[in-house]
Design a protein around this nucleic acid. Sequence first.
DNA 1: GAATTAAGGATATATCATATCCGAAAACCG
DNA 2: CGGTTTTCGGATATGATATATCCTTAATTC
Lengths: 162, 162
Amino acid sequence: MILKSQVEWALHCCAILAGLPKGRYLSTKALAELHGLPKEYLSKALQSLSQASLVETTLGPSGGYRLAKPPSDINFLEIVEAVEGKARSFTCTNIRANNPCRPEGYCDSKPCAVARIMWEADEAWRDTLRRVRLSDLVGTLSEEVPADIWRSTFEWVLKRAG
Amino acid sequence: MILKSQVEWALHCCAILAGLPKGRYLSTKALAELHGLPKEYLSKALQSLSQASLVETTLGPSGGYRLAKPPSDINFLEIVEAVEGKARSFTCTNIRANNPCRPEGYCDSKPCAVARIMWEADEAWRDTLRRVRLSDLVGTLSEEVPADIWRSTFEWVLKRAG
DNA sequence: GAATTAAGGATATATCATATCCGAAAACCG
DNA sequence: CGGTTTTCGGATATGATATATCCTTAATTC
């Protein structure tokens, strides 16, 4: 049960977008080069963010991506689900129904007890991600990343934003 | 990020094993037929449980599997990790290190801030599973499954246990 | 000795993540 | 206007992994 690497990429890209000056766009190319990622494939992750309305786009030179909402209005779960999908990690195939001792038309009132427990764990995972906002990440990063690296990173990135 | 179907199989099989009379073994064949699963492949899941010391085995006719510990001493996480592995769902490839603005030998003191958050969610998932014991599942099942089906299931299964 | 069983290696197949390429439409710039 | 840059989506290729089956070996029962 491993998350797509695009989840990691999307989170790091959102952190960068959150630190951009108001209104500025950043292209796939710039984000890919900053993180050392394959441009064409990273593009798919960014498209997922766009479809989830987490980012806005514009075309042409000086085009690219920017956040559609303030970083405090975006949580981790939104980003993760945008690229990973909203499906639960445990899928119940209802194998209890194969029990030969069950009467033919027997219909269960509740979902499987095993599935309920697995889905509860899934919800705990989602709750944790839902509670962390993108702005929290940006706060942590600006504390932990040395100020000069932090600053030069955005200079580097803005130079590529036209 | 989908769990293996063997996780579902292992959980249901453990629930059955937990309801067996003290000391009795149940074969792969019986468990496969009860759940309508491919015998050879289910066998791999049961082998995983065996390697994790959650079940004991014996060979020959009337052989098979039984729990190695009382159901109250086995939690969901143990079963899930036995077949799914203990790896975290989020793997950090440290893409921040690709940032061209970082000095050459720069060494981060802490693991990546993104990874720390994702791992925290992972821990919440594990904590939930750790808190649920196999005996809890058995309790729920014996409440919810109609008594006659519950009873005939074990008669059916014991007939196949030699 | 014959039948049954778990264990594990080898292999085949299917599904999905990863990755690349291309064309279309939109935006910018001369 | 025409050329460049960009996002977007479709098509396709590749690699890894889940799923599934088969077979051999050793242990156990009768």
